[in-house]
Design a binder for these strands. Structure first.
Length: 1050
RNA sequence: GGGCUUGUAGCUCAGUUGGUCAGAGCACCGCUCUGAUAAGGCGGGGGUCGGUGGUUCGAGUCCACCCAGGCCCA
C-alpha cells in the first residue's frame, strides 16, 4: 500500500507532520552520522545576530546553504552543520540603550558597566526563538543545540589567542583614526549608524585667503564648508596634475585652479600658470596662530582626491578632522592638532573660543576672518551632512586613538589566497572583493565600547610597557585581581571583570592595566573557523585534517567587506591560507518594485506569513528559481503562489494519482520485474528523459547553479511527467487486470517519482520526503544517495521522435481549433508526412487518443496542402555578400518560391544575378517556410505538418454524442462526489431520436466509461437534470447502486 | 563622486560565439480537455529589448556616453 498524499492540505499543515517526523526520528543528526568515515565537506555557518527579527532576506542565504549541504550529503560527503551566533557589538548596545532610555556613554558608566553588559547578554537572544522557528520552518537543518557563540569564554579565549599571535609578531599598533563622532552623545558612530542620519542642510561656504610667504599681496584661495576646522589648518592641498593660475583680481593676486576661475567676484587677469605639482611646498602664513606646531607646516601638499567640482581646487587641510586630511598629514608628516575635546568644544588653547561648541563657533570665526581681511567671500550652500540618528546633532569627523592590525603587511598574500577561492559568481571575487583587497588599509580593531571581546592588551601605567595574554592560563599567571587574589578559573572574559585584573610590569615593576577598548565584533566572526572549535586549546589534532578550511560558505553580498574579508584576513595570517575554498554570494531581496525592504517603508515581507501561507518548499523553490541568487531578487508573493499551484501541486498530484491507482490494483513494486527495454516506448522515453535530467541537474549542482537546476526539474515534472507521460498512461492504468502493459506503466512511474523525490530533496525537502516515504519503507530521502544517470538509458533518437509526436498532437489540436471542431467530436482522418510513418505507426495510439481521430494517413507531397515561401539564410549568405544582402532578399521575394524549390530539388543549385554579382543559391543558403493552401486546415513546425479531414458523417456524429453524454455523466458523478469506483445507474429522458439512437448504439461504451450497470429511459423528465448535448436536450440522473472499492468493472 | 551590478510584455524572468516577424510562465480575453491536478491544451491582445550615439551588410547581444534601481565605498 502506498500512503496517500494529501493534496488538499494547506502547505503549513502538510509540512508540519514531516517536520515532526524528522524531529522524532532525529533525521538531521542521522544525516550527519550515516556518513561517518566518509570524506568531509566542510561548511561554515556565518553567524547571524539574534537581536533582530529574521526576514525574508535571511531566508535566501539559509536556503542556499541548506541546499548545498543536503546535496553534498546525498553525494556521499559528511557535512557537519554547526550553528553560530554573533553576540557582540554596537547594535546590541544600542538596543539596550533604547530599552534603558539612555543615549550617552557617560550614562552607561553611571548605570554601571556590569549591569549594562548583563542586559546586553540577555538581549542578545531576544529573537532567538524567532530565528529558531524560521530556521526550523524553512527546513534549514542546522545544529542549533550546539552552536558556537561569540560571547562564551571558550570563544573569547580563541579570539584572544589569535590577537595574541598578531601582537607577538608586532602586528599591532596604536594610531589616530578619523571617526564620525557625535559630540552630544560623546561617542563615535559606526558607518551603519552614520548612514541612518544623512540629511540635506545649509552650511556656510567660505572662500579664504591664505597669505603666500615672500610674495607681495598674494594669496592662495581655499574653500571649506566647516570654518571651525580652519583653526587647526596645517596645509593646503592641490591636485598634482590640474592647472592652477595666479590672477590679478582687483589690487591683489590670487592663486586657484584654472577650472574654478568663475568663483572670482571681479574682473581678473591671468598672470601666471602652474601645474599643481609646481606649487608643492610653497609656504603660507598660519591663519590662526593659537598653536605653534613642532613640525614643519603651512605649505602646499599634493593629493589626488582634490576635485574641480566645487571650491577653488585648493583644499584646506586639518589632519585631525578628516580622513583624507589625516592621510595627507601622515604622508607629509604634518603636525597633528586637535584642539577640540570629546564634547565637541574648543580647548583652552584656543583662547578666543575656548569652551564653545565648534559648530556654533562658525559664525564668529567667519566674522573674525572678515575683519582681518582674510575672508574672500561667503555664501550658504546646500549639501548632505550626517546627523546623529539618536540625538539629531550634527556629527563631526574627529581623530581618536585606535588600535590597528597591520593587514597591509600581508596584503599580497591575501590577494594571492583570494585568487584560489572559487567565487560564485566570479566577478564578486575578481572585481568587488579583489579591488577592495588591492586598496587594503590597516584594520582598526578597537572600539571604545563596553559589550564586546575585551582587547587583551595590558599597559604599564608608569613606563607604557605592553603585554598581551593569549589564554586564560596566561591571564592567571601574569595577573591577579586588584585585591591581590588570583584570577579565578571561571572569570568571565568581559568587562568589567577583566578590567579588574592587573599585571606587574616586567620592565619597571609598575602596575599594568588593560587598555579599555573592546575588539571589533567583525574580528569575532572572522575568528569563527577557530573559535567554534576552541582552537588551539581543543581539537588541535584534527583541525587541519577535518575542520579547516571550509569547502563552502554562502552569505549575502553585503559581507564582502565584512565576514568574507575578516575570514580571509585572519586565516591568511594564522594559517597562511583562506578559511574557505568556495563562496556562493547572494544579493539582497527587494520588494516587487525593486526597492529595498525596510521596516520603516512598510514594504518588508513577513517571512513567517509567507512560510505559513505557502510552505517552505514553495518559498525555497521560488527563491531559487526566480532568478540567480547573485542578482537582486524582486520578491513577488504571487510567484510563490504560482510555484505552489504549478510545481508543488502538480508533483503532489502525480504522486497521489500513482498511489490511488496503485492501491486499487494492489501494486507492489518489488513483485514485478520488467526490464526497461521491454517496456513500451512511452515508458522508455520518460526514463530517457529522466536520465537526461539527472545528468544536467548534477552538472548544474556541481557549479552551484541552483537556479538552472530547479528550473530544469520543474519543467521536467510539469511538462514531461505530468502533462505528457501521466496523461498518456491513464488509459493503460484504467484497464482491468494486471497486464504487462499496465505493470510497466506502474513500474515506470514509480521509478520516475522516486528518483524525482531524490533529485528534489535538496531544494524541496518536505514534499520529497513525503513522496519518498509514501513509496518506500525506508527512513528518509535525506539519507539517500543522489541519483546518478545511466548513459545507456538516454536515447536521444527516441527523445527526438517523441518530440515529433508531441508536435503532431499540438499541431492537430491547433487545426481542430481553427476548424472549430471540439475534441470530443471524433474525426475520420489525420494526414501526416510520409517521412514520419515509422515513428507515428509505433506510437499511433498516443495521437489517436489525444486527437480523437479514427485513422492516420501518410502523404508524400505536402504541396497538396501548402505553398512555400523563401528567405535568405543570413547567417550563410551574410558573410559572403555583405551589403548586397538587402537586394538579395528583395530578389528572392519576387521569385516564384515553388518553382525555385523545384529547381533546387532537381539541380541542387540556382544562379541569381544581383548588383552584378552572381549569387549561388542552394537549399542551405535559404530559409524555407510554408503557408496554408486554401481549403485545408494545415499546420507545420520544423519537419512536422498535419492536415485534418474535417468532414463529420452520421456515425461520427453519434459517436460525438456518446462522448458528450459520457462527459455530462462524469460531471454529475463528480458533482455528487461519488467515489471513483462507485457503480451507477443512469436514467435519461429525451425527445431527440438522434440521442435515443446514440444510447442504443453506444450503450456498452457509455457503461464502460461511466461504470454504469444500467441505463434506463424514462417516460418524462421528472427529477432529471437538463443538459444540452450538441444542440439536443437530454435529461439525466445518476445514482450509486453499489460500492466496490477495490476492483474495477470488467 | 568611485567600483561592481541590473534594466527585455502589466508582473517575474529566458535570450548561447552578433544572423532577421523578440521568447516562456503568470495575469487578461476567446475557445477547449479532464474521474490525478489549485492543473493542461489551442489561439488572441500586449514590446521604439532604459535612452542617445557608434562599429557592422546586420545589434537585445559589441563599444562610448547618459538615465534609473541595487550593493559597497567615499
Amino acid at each position: 500500500m502506498f500512503r496517500k498524499i494529501d493534496v488538499k492540505a494547506k502547505p503549513a499543515e502538510f509540512e508540519k507532520p514531516i517536520r515532526d517526523y524528522w524531529k522524532q526520528h532525529n533525521i538531521p543528526q542521522k544525516s550527519e552520522d550515516f556518513r561517518e568515515g566518509a570524506p568531509k565537506f566542510v561548511f561554515y555557518e556565518g553567524p547571524p545576530t539574534a537581536n533582530g527579527m529574521p526576514g525574508i532576506h535571511h531566508a535566501i542565504s539559509r536556503t542556499l546553504k541548506d541546499v548545498v549541504c543536503r546535496y553534498k550529503t546525498m553525494r556521499g560527503y559528511q557535512v557537519n552543520r554547526k550553528a553560530g551566533w554573533d553576540t557582540h557589538g554596537l547594535p546590541v548596545e544600542i538596543e539596550v540603550q533604547k530599552q534603558l532610555g539612555i543615549s550617552v556613554k557617560k550614562e552607561i558608566e553611571e548605570y554601571g558597566i556590569e549591569k549594562f553588559n548583563k542586559k546586553c547578554r540577555e538581549s542578545v537572544f531576544t529573537y532567538e526563538k524567532e530565528w529558531r522557528e524560521m530556521t526550523n520552518l524553512l527546513g534549514y537543518w542546522l545544529d542549533l543545540d550546539n552552536p558556537y557563540i561569540t560571547l562564551t569564554n571558550d570563544y573569547i579565549e580563541t579570539v584572544w589567542w589569535i590577537l595574541n599571535q598578531y601582537w607577538k609578531k608586532d602586528m599591532i599598533y596604536v594610531d589616530n583614526k578619523i571617526v564620525p563622532f557625535c559630540p552630544s552623545c560623546g561617542t563615535p558612530l559606526s558607518d551603519h549608524e552614520v548612514a541612518l542620519g544623512y540629511r540635506e542642510v545649509e552650511d556656510p561656504s567660505v572662500y579664504i585667503r591664505f597669505k603666500v610667504i615672500d610674495e607681495e599681496n598674494t594669496y592662495f584661495l581655499a574653500w571649506t564648508t566647516t570654518p571651525w576646522t580652519l583653526i587647526s589648518n596645517v596645509a593646503l592641498v592641490v591636485h598634482p596634475d590640474h592647472d592652477y593660475v595666479k590672477v590679478k583680481n582687483g589690487d591683489e593676486y590670487l592663486i586657484l585652479a584654472k577650472a574654478r576661475l568663475d568663483v572670482l567676484k571681479e574682473e581678473y587677469e591671468i598672470v601666471e600658470n602652474y601645474k599643481g605639482k609646481d606649487l608643492e611646498y610653497k609656504e603660507y602664513e598660519q591663519l590662526f596662530p593659537f598653536i605653534k606646531p613642532n613640525e614643519k607646516a603651512f605649505y602646499v601638499a599634493l593629493g589626488d582626491y582634490v576635485t574641480l567640482e566645487d571650491g577653488t581646487g585648493i583644499v584646506h587641510t586639518a589632519p585631525a578632522f578628516g580622513e583624507e586630511d589625516f592621510a595627507i598629514g601622515k604622508e607629509y608628516n604634518l603636525p597633528f592638532m586637535r584642539p577640540v575635546n570629546e564634547e565637541g568644544k574648543f580647548t583652552d588653547e584656543i583662547t578666543d573660543w575656548a569652551g564653545e561648541f565648534v559648530k556654533d563657533a562658525d559664525k564668529s570665526i567667519i566674522k573674525d576672518l572678515n575683519m582681518r581681511g582674510m575672508l574672500y567671500f561667503r555664501t550658504q550652500m546646500k549639501h548632505t551632512y550626517p546627523f546623529c540618528w539618536r540625538c539629531d546633532s550634527p556629527l563631526i569627523y574627529f581623530a581618536r586613538k585606535s588600535w590597528y592590525i597591520r593587514t597591509t603587511s600581508y596584503k599580497d598574500k591575501m590577494i594571492e589566497n583570494n585568487k584560489k577561492i572559487a567565487w560564485y559568481p566570479p566577478y564578486v571575487g575578481e572585481g568587488r572583493f579583489g579591488d577592495w583587497l588591492e586598496n587594503n588599509v590597516d584594520w582598526a580593531i578597537s572600539r571604545d565600547r563596553y559589550w564586546g571581546t575585551p582587547l587583551n592588551i595590558w599597559l604599564c601605567e608608569k613606563c607604557g610597557h605592553q603585554d598581551s595574554p593569549g589564554s586564560i592560563k596566561e591571564l592567571q599567571e601574569k595577573g591577579s585581581l586588584v585585591d591581590g587574589t588570583p584570577v579565578p578559573d571561571d572569570i568571565e572574559l568581559h568587562r568589567p571583570y577583566v578590567d579588574d585584573i592587573v599585571f606587574t610590569c616586567s620592565e619597571c615593576g609598575g602596575i599594568m592595566r588593560r587598555t579599555p577598548e573592546v575588539i571589533d565584533c567583525w574580528f569575532d566572526s572572522g575568528s569563527m573557523p577557530f573559535g567554534q572549535w576552541h582552537y588551539p586549546f581543543e581539537n588541535e589534532d584534527i583541525f587541519d585534517k577535518e575542520l579547516f578550511p571550509a569547502d563552502f560558505i554562502a552569505e549575502g553580498i553585503d559581507q564582502t567587506r565584512g565576514w568574507f574579508y575578516t575570514m580571509l584576513a585572519i586565516a591568511t595570517f594564522i594559517k597562511g591560507k583562506s578559511s574557505y575554498k568556495s563562496c556562493l554570494v547572494n544579493e539582497l531581496v527587494l520588494d516587487k518594485h525593486g526597492k529595498k525592504m525596510s521596516k520603516s517603508k512598510g514594504n518588508a515581507v513577513d517571512v513567517f506569513k509567507i512560510l505559513d501561507k505557502y510552505g517552505a518548499d514553495a518559498t525555497r523553490w521560488y527563491l531559487l528559481s526566480v532568478s540567480p541568487p547573485w542578482i537582486p531578487t524582486r520578491f513577488n508573493e504571487e510567484g510563490v503562489l504560482e510555484v505552489n499551484n504549478k510545481f508543488i501541486g502538480t508533483l503532489k498530484n502525480v504522486a497521489s494519482f500513482f498511489a490511488t491507482y496503485g492501491n486499487i490494483d494492489n501494486f507492489e513494486y518489488d513483485e514485478y520485474k520488467i526490464a526497461v527495454e521491454d517496456r513500451p516506448e512511452l515508458d522508455r522515453w520518460i526514463i530517457s528523459r529522466l536520465n537526461s535530467v539527472i545528468k544536467k541537474v548534477s552538472e548544474f549542482n556541481e557549479k552551484y547553479d541552483l537556479t538552472r537546476a530547479v528550473r530544469l526539474l520543474q519543467s521536467f515534472v510539469i511538462n514531461d511527467v505530468s502533462n505528457w507521460y501521466v496523461r498518456r498512461i491513464r488509459k493503460r492504468v484504467w484497464a482491468s487486470g494486471m497486464e504487462d502493459d499496465k505493470v510497466a506503466a506502474y513500474m515506470t512511474l514509480y521509478e520516475v517519482l522516486l528518483t524525482v523525490s531524490k533529485l528534489c530533496a535538496p531544494y524541496a525537502p518536505y514534499i520529497s520526503e513525503e513522496i519518498y516515504r509514501s513509496f518506500t519503507n525506508k527512513e528518509s530521502v535525506h539519507l539517500e544517495n543522489y541519483p546518478e544517470h545511466d548513459e545507456e538509458l538516454i536515447l536521444p533518437e527516441l527523445e527526438k521522435e517523441m518530440q515529433y509526436i508531441i508536435d503532431i498532437v499540438s499541431l492537430a489540436r491547433a487545426a481542430r481549433n481553427e476548424a472549430k471542431i471540439k475534441i470530443r467530436q471524433p474525426l475520420r482522418t489525420l494526414y501526416v508526412p510520409e517521412g514520419l510513418k515509422d515513428v507515428v505507426e509505433r506510437m499511433k495510439s498516443l495521437i489517436v487518443e489525444e486527437i480523437n481521430i479514427h485513422d492516420i494517413e501518410y502523404v508524400k507531397d505536402k504541396t497538396r496542402f501548402m505553398d512555400y515561401s523563401i528567405k535568405p539564410d543570413y547567417k550563410v549568405l551574410g558573410p559572403k555578400y555583405g551589403k548586397h544582402m538587402s537586394h538579395v532578399a528583395q530578389a528572392l521575394q519576387n521569385m516564384d518560391a515553388n518553382h525555385l524549390i523545384d529547381i533546387l530539388n532537381k539541380e541542387g543549385v540556382y544562379h541569381l544575378d544581383v548588383d552584378t554579382n552572381e549569387i549561388k543559391l542552394t537549399k542551405e543558403s535559404l530559409q524555407i517556410e510554408t503557408q496554408n493552401k486554401e481549403g485545408f486546415v494545415y499546420s507545420e513546425e520544423g519537419d512536422v505538418f498535419v492536415a485534418l479531414d474535417t468532414r463529420i458523417d452520421d456515425e461520427l456524429l453519434l459517436e460525438g454524442n456518446a462522448r458528450e453524454l459520457v462527459n455530462k455523466i462524469q460531471f454529475m458523478r463528480k458533482e455528487q462526489d461519488f467515489d471513483i469506483m462507485d457503480r451507477i445507474e443512469i436514467s435519461f429522458y429525451t425527445e431527440s431520436d438522434e440521442i435515443k439512437e446514440t444510447f442504443e448504439k453506444f450503450v456498452d461504451y457509455i457503461q464502460k466509461e461511466t461504470l454504469a450497470v444500467e441505463i434506463a429511459e424514462m417516460e418524462n423528465s421528472d427529477g432529471l437534470k437538463s443538459w444540452n448535448v450538441n444542440g439536443k436536450e437530454v435529461f439525466l440522473q445518476v445514482k450509486v447502486i453499489s460500492e466496490t472499492p477495490h476492483s474495477k468493472i470488467s
